[in-house]
Design a protein around this nucleic acid. Structure first.
Length: 572
DNA sequence: GCCGTTTTCGGCCCGACTGTTTTCAGTCG
């Protein structure tokens, strides 16, 4: 039973209690517990066996967690399911339909699935219900169609450019004093559900006009004086808030979230006899600040907490103790440690990759092509690899402003051996080892393959360690504890793969690995030149994983990293 | 159901917009 499975049961219980009209704080307790379980970087069974506490889980919920782990379910949950049809929960998923509306529809028509509800809407049966009229019925219909189209979270790497485009248009067409992306995009979550934008302007009406008529608008959901929401033709919701200059910082805090972080901050404020909302910091009725985000934290006697950390995963406690990390920044990154070239399945020549790296502002880039057995990806023969070595050496002799590392992404074969012999690996500046086959093997087999690879002195890092692909493929089963211990013992780095669909290791696993003293390599895994710009996504993951400059070897200069990588080879 | 710098009971974050109302409930973030 995985953490996610336990969390899912608690989320469902919360939904069902909500429909029953239970105590809202009890409902919140279940959601908070679910979220905290979801965020655990370690297996919940292990955490509980060691008697460690999980925030938001008291005596009662702890008992329930244990019951789930032992029996695979929960009696209370099973009982709730007999009271509340699971189909009713699906109604809650419709945007615009909350517990109240779902309950009314269910009571009158016993609707259990979206198709039936859609038919009833089309027959105008829903608008005959108490408190529901034509407009609401139409909105429910829209919501159903939206769900059918898929309202899943989307990768940040695809959404961020859109958010930046909207900002650029608003800046161009309206008088803008300040403007920022807020919400989960600002916190750099790996996937996002919507885009939040905060703006301060001398002409709010004009801002709303421009916003609700943006070229990508498919639908205007709401248009108010301070808040408007649109849905793009692609079905993505974008919310815009206009705020006064003096509230900007407080509003930015508020709309950046996360919700869990905000709740903690507000609770903290209450204890200090203060109140914070999106309009500022208040002592009684008197506003004592809110123009800048820093003021909000300062009022709580806290240092500034970077958006990437605002998930209520311990950042407030760390801030109180003065133990916040100095997060690694994009400016500190000197190179990319995983780019494919034309030698294998990449599209760029050595020279083109170097040129692109220079444009991005890098000092060096490691070109890591696939190894010989990965035929579908144009894996290099030993002869071709040696040719590549020569070309890169020649390039480096004639270029001072950008340096190339000759690398390989060597396959970890089914028995854990590597796809090139040591005498070939030895010729490389940088070796990142990866599993590309046998995903269906057992946890023990897969774990042992990686462990064996880490024992090879020429292997510097493990590429995309868990193999997950966002929205497409689950991580393969691994004993990550064992892997972290081994990585630490052998001095092997772990990769944060920055390709927008991978982001692997992810934030919480990176944070867990850091506790073992492991160092990280960030690589874009770019197969076309433009993908090298995903580098920042890798930095976002690192920041969300609480990593500092010293944890990420991409922050080293060319001389430093060459020395670092060389040292690893001589350990044997 | 959790939790403690108003601590073992009594709190628990808070405001905008919509739609259906005629002062407010529901939903959302």
């Amino acid at each position: 039973m995985r953490n996610q499975d336990v969390a899912r049961i608690f989320y469902k219980i919360a939904d069902m209690l909500e429909i029953k009209g239970d105590n809202p704080f009890r409902i919140r307790a279940y959601r908070r517990a679910a979220q905290n379980i979801e965020n655990l970087a370690e297996d919940i069974t292990k955490v509980i066996n060691q008697g460690r506490k999980i925030p938001g889980i008291g005596q009662d919920l702890m008992q329930k967690v244990k019951e789930i782990l032992q029996t695979g379910t929960l009696q209370m949950y099973e009982e709730l399911k007999t009271e509340i049809s699971p189909g009713l929960l699906d109604l809650l998923a419709i945007p615009g339909v909350g517990p109240r509306t779902a309950q009314i529809i269910y009571e009158h028509y016993g609707v259990k699935d979206l198709d039936t509800l859609e038919r009833l809407c089309l027959e105008h049966k829903i608008q005959q219900l108490p408190g529901i009229k034509a407009k609401t019925e139409k909105n429910i219909l829209k919501g159903i169609q939206l769900i059918k189209k898929g309202r899943e979270r989307r990768p940040l790497g695809l959404i961020l450019p859109l958010a930046e485009e909207i900002i650029a248009i608003l800046k161009k067409k309206c008088p803008v004093d300040r403007i920022d992306i807020a919400g989960s995009v600002r916190r750099c979550r790996e996937t996002v559900k919507d885009i939040d934008i905060l703006i301060c302007s001398s002409s709010p009406g004009q801002v709303m006009d421009v916003f609700t008529t943006l070229p990508m608008v498919g639908d205007v959901i709401a248009r108010g004086k301070t808040k408007s929401s649109i849905r793009t033709q692609d079905g993505l919701q974008v919310d815009l808030r206009v705020v006064e200059k003096d509230c900007y910082g407080a509003a930015l805090c508020y709309f950046t979230g996360s919700k869990a972080h905000n709740i903690r901050m507000r609770e903290l404020a209450l204890k200090k006899g203060l109140k914070i909302n999106e309009y500022g910091i208040f002592k009684g009725n008197k506003r004592i600040g809110g123009k800048e985000e820093e003021e909000v934290f300062k009022a709580m006697d806290l240092p500034y907490i970077p958006p990437e950390l605002r998930e209520d995963r311990g950042e407030i406690e760390a801030a109180m103790e003065g133990k916040l990390p100095q997060l690694v920044t994009m400016e500190e990154i000197k190179g990319d440690l995983h780019v494919h070239s034309k030698y294998s399945d990449g599209a760029g020549t050595i020279a083109a990759i170097a040129e692109k790296a220079k444009k991005i502002g890098l000092e060096w880039v490691a070109i890591c092509d696939h190894s010989r057995s990965l035929k579908v990806a144009g894996g290099l023969s030993i002869e071709d690899l040696k040719r590549k070595r020569q070309e890169i050496d020649a390039f480096n002799r004639t270029h001072a402003d950008i340096k190339l590392l000759c690398g390989t992404e060597v396959d970890i074969l089914n028995d854990g051996s590597l796809d090139y012999p040591d005498e070939v690996l030895k010729l490389m500046d940088f070796v990142v080892a990866a599993i590309h086959t046998g995903f269906k093997q057992s946890e023990a087999t897969l774990t042992n393959r990686i462990i064996k690879a880490m024992e090879n002195p020429y292997v510097h890092s493990i590429a995309h360690p868990t193999g997950r692909i966002i929205g497409e493929r689950e991580a393969y089963p691994l004993n990550l504890d064992e892997i972290f211990v081994k990585a630490s013992a052998t001095g092997t780095c772990l990769e944060i793969n920055a390709y927008y669909k991978r982001l692997d290791l992810n934030d919480t696993l990176s944070q867990a690995a850091k506790k073992h003293g492991i160092k990280f390599t960030i690589g874009t895994d770019a197969h076309i030149l433009d993908q090298m710009e995903f580098l920042r996504l890798g930095v976002f993951v690192a920041r969300r994983g609480w990593l500092e400059k010293g944890d990420v070897i991409n922050t080293m200069s060319y001389q430093e990293i060459m020395a670092f990588l060389c040292k690893r080879k001589t350990i044997k």
